[in-house]
């Protein structure tokens, strides 16, 4: 099962490498990882996605907690949550009918075309990972040149929040 784990980390040198190292050391996979400072610049917020059963997820959360630099850790997938990922896709678009089809596809997925050349369209799309996967499938035959995904960011729904 897919897990989305949110971590508040001291914004210290070496902190991120400890998180990443932990996954390598314990044989867990990282599917996506995003890191950035928060409104409080002494903190970094990480969102990390991985696969695992309940037992494994529990161990991962406990192991992350054990790192000295981590302040808070939650497995968002335990409750309800919002998941967003940003994707940029460069697609070969030389012929008019492809351009038209692509445009309508982008509209359906509520994306934007953010760059255009005679040869290419670059599309920006945000949403949960499944939506982004679906878009890729939809445009796959048109000639994808490049895909960049930001990795998942997550936040819990409702009144719960992760803060120091």
């Amino acid at each position: 099962m897919k897990r989305i784990i949110s971590i508040l980390l001291e914004n210290e040198s070496g902190a991120l490498s400890r998180v990443v190292g932990l996954f390598a050391q314990r044989g867990y996979n990282i599917d996506t990882l995003t890191v950035a400072p928060t409104d409080d610049d002494t903190l970094s917020r990480l969102t990390l996605t991985t696969q695992g059963d309940d037992h494994m997820a529990e161990q991962i959360v406990k192991q992350l907690h054990k790192l000295i630099d981590t302040i808070k850790v939650v497995d968002l997938t335990v409750g309800s949550y919002i998941e967003r990922e940003l994707m940029l896709v460069k697609i070969k678009a030389t012929e008019n009918d492809i351009r038209a089809e692509l445009k309508s596809c982008v509209e359906i997925f509520r994306g934007h075309i953010v760059d255009v050349t005679p040869q290419t369209y670059t599309v920006q799309l945000a949403g949960d990972s499944e939506k982004l996967d679906a878009f890729i499938e939809a445009v796959r035959d048109m000639g994808i040149m490049e895909v960049v995904r930001s990795g998942v960011s997550g936040i819990s729904r409702g009144d719960k929040f992760l803060r120091v």
């Binding site: 070496g14 190292g21 000295i68």
Partner: peptide, 14 residues
């Protein structure tokens, strides 16, 4: 040293 010792320390400082 911080990197080399990372998996075998409780914590490290530079």
């Amino acid at each position: 040293m911080v990197g080399v010792s990372r998996p075998i320390v409780k914590h490290s400082f530079l």
